[in-house]
Deep mutational scan, measured.
Amino acid sequence: MTEYKLVVVGAGGVGKSALTIQLIQNHFVDEYDPTIEDSYRKQVVIDGETCLLDILDTAGQEEYSAMRDQYMRTGEGFLCVFAINNTKSFEDIHHYREQIKRVKDSEDVPMVLVGNKCDLPSRTVDTKQAQDLARSYGIPFIETSAKTRQGVDDAFYTLVREIRKHKEKMSKDGKKKKKKSKTKCVIM
C-alpha cells in the first residue's frame, strides 16, 4: 500500500485542523484551538488504489514558523489553505509557496490551493482571484467548507493525484537520464 505524506499549511484560523478532522473523523470542530502540530493517518481508496494518507496539520501562528522547514522537508505534497473571508490569509499563500519551493529546492512541488469556509456569506476573496492565482502557479484550486464537508475529500484526493503525477514524471525523467548515460565512448 502506497503511503502519501501530505502537509496542510496556511495562516492561523483558516480551518486547516477543521478540514483535516472532517476528512479523518467526519465531524466539524467549530471551536478554535490553535494547533502546534498534529499528525493523522487514514486509509482510503483513490482511483481504485488503496493508500495510506499521513497528514500533518501544522501551526499557522507566526511564533511556530521555525518548525516549518522541518515538516516541509518531509512532506510530499501540500494543501495551501486560505479562508475566503480573510484576504490576508490569501496573500500569505505566496509566502508559504515560496518557502516550500526553497526548502524542497524545487520549482515543481505537488500543491493544491484550497479556499476554505465557502459556506460563509462574508467572502472577501473572489473565486476568480483564487483561480487566477492557482493557474499562475500551475496547481489545482478547490473551494471547501469544513463545516458542510463540501470539497473536503476532493481537496485531499486531488493532492494525492498531483503527487502521483509528480512521481510518474520524475521516474520518466530518471529513465531518460539513465538511457543517456548508457551511451559509451570508444577510443581507438
Rank of each mutant, 00 (worst) to 15 (best):
E3M: 06
V7A: 05
V9I: 11
G10Y: 01
G10M: 14
A11H: 06
A11S: 06
G12N: 11
G13M: 02
V14W: 15
V14A: 09
V14Q: 12
G15C: 00
K16H: 15
K16C: 15
S17A: 00
T20H: 00
T20S: 05
I21S: 04
Q22V: 01
Q22A: 12
Q22Y: 02
Q22T: 12
L23M: 14
L23E: 14
Q25G: 06
H27Y: 05
F28I: 02
V29C: 07
V29R: 01
V29Y: 11
V29P: 03
E31Q: 13
E31L: 11
D33R: 01
P34C: 13
P34G: 14
I36P: 00
I36D: 00
E37I: 02
S39A: 14
S39P: 01
S39H: 03
Y40H: 02
K42W: 01
I46L: 05
D47G: 05
D47K: 05
G48C: 03
E49A: 08
E49Y: 08
L53Y: 13
D54H: 02
I55K: 00
L56E: 11
L56F: 06
T58Q: 02
T58R: 01
T58K: 02
A59V: 13
G60L: 15
Q61W: 03
E63Q: 03
S65V: 02
A66M: 10
A66V: 10
A66F: 12
R68Q: 03
D69T: 04
D69R: 05
D69Y: 03
Y71V: 14
M72T: 08
R73L: 06
T74C: 07
L79K: 01
C80L: 14
V81R: 01
F82N: 04
F82W: 08
A83Y: 13
A83L: 05
I84P: 15
T87S: 09
T87P: 14
T87V: 09
K88V: 14
K88I: 14
F90Y: 11
E91W: 04
I93N: 03
H94W: 06
Y96Q: 08
R97E: 09
Q99K: 12
Q99C: 12
I100A: 08
I100Y: 12
K101E: 14
K101R: 08
K101G: 12
K101H: 10
K101P: 01
V103R: 13
K104G: 08
S106H: 07
E107Q: 09
D108F: 11
D108L: 07
P110C: 05
P110T: 04
M111G: 00
M111W: 07
V112P: 03
V112Q: 01
V112G: 01
L113D: 01
L113Y: 05
L113C: 07
L113T: 02
G115K: 02
G115Q: 02
N116E: 13
K117W: 12
K117N: 14
C118T: 09
D119W: 07
L120I: 07
L120P: 15
P121S: 13
S122I: 10
S122T: 11
R123P: 08
R123K: 11
T127K: 06
T127P: 07
T127M: 06
T127D: 11
A130R: 06
Q131T: 08
D132C: 05
D132K: 09
D132A: 05
D132Y: 05
A134R: 11
A134V: 09
A134C: 10
R135S: 09
Y137P: 11
Y137H: 06
G138D: 09
G138Y: 01
I139R: 06
F141S: 10
F141V: 11
F141R: 03
T144H: 15
R149W: 10
R149K: 09
Q150V: 08
D153S: 10
D154C: 05
A155M: 14
F156Q: 13
F156I: 15
Y157W: 07
T158E: 12
L159S: 01
V160D: 06
E162H: 08
K165N: 10
K165D: 11
H166F: 10
H166C: 07
K167W: 08
K167L: 06
K169L: 09
K169N: 14
M170W: 15
M170H: 08
D173Y: 10
D173H: 07
K175F: 11
K178Y: 06
K178W: 06
S181D: 07
K182E: 11
C185V: 14
V186M: 09
I187P: 14
M188G: 08
M188V: 09
